[in-house]
Nucleic acid binder design. Structure first.
Length: 196
DNA sequence: CAGCCGATTAGCT
DNA sequence: GCTAATCGGCTGT
């Protein structure tokens, strides 16, 4: 595997641009079980204080959101019910913004993904959702606060994607006006995107 | 495909 | 203690 992490400065761009720029990049996780990676095909931007859908809405600063107040390029994991979701922190220090990784396309360690997700699954079911991809790649709350520009969990340069769709985010129905903001990005016609 | 429910964690009262 | 939460799997029409 010759993929090298992106430069840290890559993360120093406005959240919406970063969310778009992450489409087509590689998300890589190295674990004791082996290496696995997938192309990022779907993201969502969460823009802190003024975004009711964000955990950091109104500058809510808690143990959980603390990492978002730090510098860009770090991992924010969040556990809900039986699942774990992964975000990349963006925005400057003291600006609690982040980009949620909603779906990836399996690339490396696909056998390992089947092992983690269940061998009877279809390939498209491995990573076509935020809770699914974390399980497939072995990402957990243990990864909270890790840098995303060095192993064991990092983002590497990927492929060119010019067909990028944009629309409202998913799963935030009780967020007032914020639910309509077109802050979700995806690779058009990619079967691993969680919803059409 | 709508609908139910699982079972974890942080945050608030 | 209580409740909501960036969800997923299974079941039954």
């Amino acid at each position: 595997m010759e993929a090298k992490p992106l430069e840290r400065v890559f993360f120093n761009q406005p959240t919406l641009e970063l969310a778009r720029a992450l489409i087509g990049k590689l998300l890589i996780k190295d674990t004791a079980e082996g290496l696995s990676a997938g192309w990022i095909v779907e993201t969502e931007a969460y823009k802190g204080p003024e975004d009711r859908a964000a955990h950091s809405y109104g500058n809510r600063r808690t143990k959980r959101t603390e990492v978002m107040f730090g510098e860009a390029g770090f991992i924010y994991t969040y556990v809900m019910h039986t699942h774990c979701l992964v975000n990349v922190v963006s925005g400057e220090k003291e600006k609690p913004e982040a980009v949620l990784i909603r779906a990836v396309e399996p690339y490396i360690g696909i056998d390992l993904m089947f092992k983690r997700r269940g061998a009877n699954k279809k390939e498209v079911e491995l990573t076509n959702g935020p809770g699914k991809l974390t399980k497939a790649l072995g990402i957990s709350k243990e990864d909270y606060g890790l840098p995303a520009f060095q192993p064991p969990l990092f983002i590497a340069d990927g492929r060119e994607v010019d067909k990028i769709g944009c629309g409202p985010r998913i799963g935030i129905d009780n967020s007032g006006e914020a639910k309509n903001y077109p802050w979700r990005f995806w690779e058009r016609d990619n079967p691993f995107v969680s919803r059409k």
